[in-house]
Design a protein around this nucleic acid. Structure first.
Length: 104
DNA sequence: GGGGTGACCCAGT
DNA sequence: TACTGGGCCACCC
């Protein structure tokens, strides 16, 4: 799988995250590990930063539920509008985390 | 080819 | 709670 195809796979998966739920960068990397042959949360973060426009990027947070730097206001507003369980500065991971298995 | 950087993550201190 | 060190991998000097 080329880096280009990996980008497609990541964006494709992000689009499937249902409203009100979220996925962490690591979970995404993990979910595509079999298909892509690599699991790098860091790479997913980079991809979202560069190609994240066009997909519901606000449904992707880090493992602690923290929102992406520089977009916290934006992300929070959208998440709140979708009814995502929030806690403190970020997302209530225990309640909001979603996995592909769960959505098929 | 070599080295720094980043919307990350986990384990230790 | 905050910081550190190691691992990760594409991108940009």
């Amino acid at each position: 799988m080329t880096p280009d195809e990996y980008v497609e796979a990541v964006l494709d998966l992000v689009e499937r995250i249902p409203p009100g739920r979220v996925m962490s960068y690591g979970a995404i990397a993990d979910a595509l590990a079999e298909r892509s042959g690599r699991s790098s949360a860091r790479l997913v973060g980079t991809i979202m930063a560069r190609h994240g426009g066009g997909v519901p990027w606000h449904r992707v947070v880090n493992s602690a539920g923290r929102l992406p730097p520089g977009h916290e206001r934006e992300a929070r507003a959208r998440l709140r509008a979708e009814g995502t369980p929030l806690r403190g500065a970020g997302v209530d991971m225990a309640a909001a985390v979603w996995s592909p298995e769960e959505g098929m």
